[in-house]
């Protein structure tokens, strides 16, 4: 049995999206491209749109319609003060968890190698 990635991704993806928006005001597809560039290969706009809705609902981001060269108006997202607080608490939590997980996994591997 292989590990179900979607469970693990759900929470972290939200933080990553918020981080990308915090760097510059951007729109859905551009966020997707940034994520893909960093190695999130099997996600689509369909994955991130509900997360954007959620971030917007909780007040972490705001959206604004602007005209685009392609088709209808495009929705641009930017971060709010509330969002910055949320992001920094995500980063703190993530740093701690990833350190703990890395500590355990690397230790396991070392004992396996011995």
């Amino acid at each position: 049995m292989t590990f179900d990635k979607s469970q693990l991704m759900r929470g972290t993806l939200e933080g990553c999206i918020l981080k990308i928006i915090s760097e510059k005001t951007t729109y859905g597809y551009e966020i997707l491209l940034s994520l893909k560039k960093q190695g999130f290969s099997d996600i689509s706009e369909g994955t991130i749109y509900p997360l954007l809705l959620r971030l917007e609902k909780q007040g972490s981001i705001v959206s604004k319609l602007q005209s685009s060269p392609l088709g209808p108006k495009r929705k641009y997202y930017s971060i709010t003060d509330e969002g910055r607080n949320y992001l920094s608490s995500f980063v703190a939590t993530w740093t701690q968890i990833s350190r703990s997980v890395a500590g355990i996994i690397i230790k396991e591997e070392e004992t396996n190698n011995e």
Partner: peptide, 10 residues
């Protein structure tokens, strides 16, 4: 309308 926009860009 977001979804229609997404589909059009696709």
């Amino acid at each position: 309308s977001d979804i229609v926009g997404m589909a059009l860009e696709c």
